[in-house]
Write a protein that binds this DNA or RNA. Structure first.
Length: 351
DNA sequence: CATACGTGGAC
DNA sequence: TGTCCAAGTAT
């Protein structure tokens, strides 16, 4: 990098930090600019919750988790089923499984998080982004923090023509160039705030952007063209069935296998639908089923039309392993949204 | 490098 | 209404 390049990068960091000082969003897990950092537990918890998830969706979950489990030691000692149920509705449930595993690993270290990016990266559920974010935000380490916001801001700033995901390496190298040695945590959060509120995916607000003066994307006249993205595959539509089995004001719930779709979560019994294929259509019991409606649900890589059937089982064994759950307390079962919607078809609650 | 993995909001 | 998108990680 030439001396003049270096100057441009320093100016970028300075402008971004100045903007952050004045415009930082106030968030429950965030220390104000310049203040002592939030404790590592809260930074880590928020970062895991925020993976592929909007700030608005995370807020209530963050409050719920920090109230129930104020420290990483509390979370490590928590009942797994309670943690999974508390996560219900937030999606990407592998995060919750990894959250528990990570808390227990940290508890084994006396409740102390590693303070280096490399040490953090070795923990379950912490990839390149989260390890860098926690190192920078909680420990003030210089780390190159690249999430979707930073990718977009950097791709526009430098008018990166290569398409994602192949452009990841190039964008990361550019992000490295503009990351300052000091205040790396504020810089990272400032870049993310800028991406979330100014340099937005659609209709970027270049007129109020602190980096507009040096932005190649803006100079090109079409900043919204960046980052260039590869075309996505079409998502198939699958059909499946779910079964509401009722006895004495209770419903039969199962727990899904630890891995795969909705892994580890409570659920209604179903007919084995998956991203790869429709369900078998077969009911788990030979009894009088009544149709209770349909739920259309979009997942990331496929969409599902789920037909809900109900039956009363007054005597005899319910199918497989599971538990009878009080219908009046169905909201506390921690059903993922798909099954919560299916249950609502029967109970009339929610939708 | 590609794929599996949730959900809700914006347009 | 359908499509895109969001503070990604694991395999």
């Amino acid at each position: 990098m030439t001396a003049s390049d270096l100057e441009i990068c320093n100016d970028t960091a300075t402008a971004l930090l100045g903007w952050y000082d004045a415009h930082a969003r106030k968030l429950p897990w965030r220390a104000p600019p310049g203040a002592p950092p939030t404790e590592p537990y809260r930074v880590w918890l928020s970062e895991v919750m925020l993976q592929q998830t909007t700030v608005a969706a995370v807020k209530s979950y963050f409050e719920k988790f920090t109230s129930a489990w104020p420290t990483v030691m509390d979370l490590a000692a928590a009942d797994e089923a309670e943690v999974m149920a508390a996560w219900a509705g937030l999606g990407y449930y592998a995060r919750a499984r990894n959250l528990i595993a990570c808390a227990r690993e940290v508890a084994g270290r006396g409740g102390v998080f590693p303070d280096s990016e490399e040490g953090l990266r070795a923990l379950p559920g912490l990839g390149a982004y989260t390890a860098a974010a926690v190192a920078a935000i909680a420990f003030g380490r210089r780390a190159v923090v690249v999430d979707a916001n930073v990718e977009r801001v950097v791709a526009r700033l430098f008018a990166v023509e290569a398409a994602l995901p192949a452009a990841r390496g190039e964008i990361r190298a550019l992000a490295d160039r503009i990351t300052p040695d000091e205040r790396a945590g504020d810089f990272a959060q400032g870049m993310m705030d800028l991406g979330a509120t100014v340099c937005t995916a659609r209709a970027p607000k270049c007129l109020i952007c602190p980096l507009a003066g040096s932005c190649a994307g803006r100079a090109s006249g079409a900043p919204e063209r960046f980052p260039v993205k590869a075309a996505k595959a079409a998502r198939p539509e699958r059909k499946g069935r779910a079964f509401w089995i009722e006895r004495d004001e209770r419903v039969w719930l199962v727990r899904r296998p630890g891995k795969g779709m909705l892994g580890g979560m409570r659920a209604l019994p179903d007919d084995g639908w998956s991203a790869r294929s429709d369900g078998s259509g077969a009911a788990p019991l030979g009894c009088a089923w009544r149709a209770a409606g349909q739920v259309s649900h979009g997942f990331t890589h496929f969409s599902l039309v789920l037909s809900v059937s109900r039956a009363r089982l007054d005597d005899g064994d319910p199918p497989g392993a599971g538990e009878w759950w009080d219908i009046a307390r169905i909201a506390e079962a921690g059903l993922p949204t798909l099954f919560a919607r299916a249950a609502a078809r029967v109970t009339g609650g929610g939708e």
